[in-house]
Simulated assay, not measured.
Amino acid sequence: MSQHREVDAIVVELPGPGRWLVQNSPARRVPSHGTELFGTRYAIDLVGVDDRGRSAAPSLRALVASEPPERFVGFGRMLLAPIAGEVLVVHDGEPDHEARRSPFTLLPYALGQAARVRAGVVAIAGNHLIIGRPDGRCVALVHLRRGSIRVQPGDRVEAGAPVAECGNSGNSTEPHVHLQAADRVDMASARGLPFVFRRFRERARDGTWVERHLAVPGEGSLVEPA
């Protein structure tokens, strides 16, 4: 088993229907996002894609300019609670900014990363919510669509309950959901914790789909609910 099947890893559900492209997977490296900041040590990114594995249809604009987030398959896709628990934190109101696939737009955005880190949690996470477990550990859904969050602090949710929509707020170059587990709700001081998905289907290298249990999907793989 990989190092991510650590003892007492949090078991989560895939946080939405449809097909997802896996990016920044802790199955490839830890820290998965290249940093320990904001509790992201084991975080994973899931980009909504179509049946052909595309996050958006090809376009000439994508080669040279930013694009409206509405062009992307994942934007507005319903997100589901990955665990059962109490909603501890909800932050909404941040804009869903333009998406970037072109190197001409990605480079200046990357140069602004340090400034976003200095600006703190909201500049990185954008719209987000955090669900807590009785043992004090918690799971966050990040980069949510503005105005889409359906829950409030104090609400109790079951795993699989609709809670928000996928967006492009915060530190995000295209619509996707960032999922992470941590030892506390304060992202500024949180320590990232490992987690595994209870059950999902993953496309193997030969193009066939295999069902996996209590695992973390690989970098660049396609996954969908089992």
Rank of each mutant, 00 (worst) to 15 (best):
R205M: 09
D183A: 03
V122N: 02
A115M: 08
L222R: 08
E70I: 07
G112Q: 14
E211L: 04
P17H: 15
L88P: 00
R146W: 01
S25E: 15
E70C: 02
L111S: 11
H178N: 11
G34V: 11
L80D: 07
T105L: 03
V7C: 07
A164S: 11
V87T: 00
S2T: 12
F75G: 05
L106R: 15
C166P: 01
A115G: 07
I10S: 05
A215P: 03
L193G: 02
A110K: 14
V185M: 03
A182I: 01
L37R: 10
G120H: 03
L222K: 07
R116G: 07
V90A: 13
R28F: 05
A81W: 03
R191C: 05
R118T: 11
A215Y: 11
S2C: 06
S148F: 08
R146D: 13
V30G: 09
R156S: 10
R52L: 10
R150A: 13
V73K: 06
R52M: 11
R184P: 00
R191A: 07
G132W: 00
R201L: 12
V196K: 04
L14I: 13
H97M: 05
H33A: 10
E158N: 06
V185T: 12
L14S: 10
I83V: 14
D8S: 08
M78K: 03
I10R: 02
A182Y: 01
D155I: 02
D183E: 05
D92K: 03
F200R: 12
A81V: 06
F104D: 08
V196R: 09
P68V: 08
G112I: 01
L141T: 13
R52G: 10
W209P: 12
R19Y: 04
E67W: 04
R201C: 09
P217Y: 13
A62H: 13
S102I: 09
R52Q: 13
A81S: 14
E67F: 04
L37W: 01
E36A: 02
P15W: 14
G48P: 05
V210C: 04
D186I: 01
S189T: 15
F75T: 04
P108G: 15
Q113P: 00
F38E: 05
H143N: 12
T40C: 02
Q180R: 03
P68K: 14
P26Q: 15
G16Y: 10
G167L: 09
R137Y: 01
G136L: 01
P31V: 14
D96N: 12
S221M: 06
L214G: 02
R5V: 07
I130P: 00
H91D: 13
R41I: 10
A81K: 04
P162N: 14
A27D: 15
V49D: 15
R203N: 05
L179S: 04
R5D: 14
P15C: 14
I149M: 05
G220R: 10
P69Q: 14
A182S: 14
P95E: 14
R29F: 13
S102R: 03
V11N: 08
R201F: 06
D8L: 06
S148G: 08
F200H: 07
V49K: 07
N171W: 14
V90T: 12
